[in-house]
Amino acid sequence: MSERILSVLVEDKPGVLARVSSTISRRGFNINSLSVGPTNIEGRSKMTIVTELDAVEQVKKQLNKLVNVIKIVELDPNMTIETEVLLLKVSINKDSQTSVIEKASLSNATSVDVGQDFAIFELTGSSKELDKFEALMKPFGIIEMVRGGRIALQSNL
């Protein structure tokens, strides 16, 4: 099954995230990633939902039934600009610190905070790039990590 990306324009009203996620989960569908944030239009938010579904048509229709959902567009992965953000806190010590910084900078990660025994990096990129960076940092000891959820725009619209 391939990934499907839905871009969902919603009214910015209380409970809209709960409505969307409960509609998806009550039909037994899984979400790989969900992100939500404001748009350039006041009172409108956009959700980017990534699923692996054959039943994506049914999900779209069920979501469209929600009064607060305005528009759903399924993005074509071949024509879509997609990105995700990651914050990763890794252990460092005298022996490892050079190697950590080198690998991070080669991965285009930005150091956003450094302490005696840790460093926090920020990386924006495709999910694959983020996965790769996580794997690179793993041997040094990841203390904590958070990913922001994938966001996407179709490039030819």
């Binding site: 409970g15 409505r19 929600l66 009064v67």
Partner: peptide, 14 residues
């Protein structure tokens, strides 16, 4: 109530 009735209504309001 809004949460409990979410899946049992077409729409709801607080």
């Amino acid at each position: 109530t809004v949460g409990l009735s979410m899946a049992a209504t077409k729409h709801n309001y607080l």
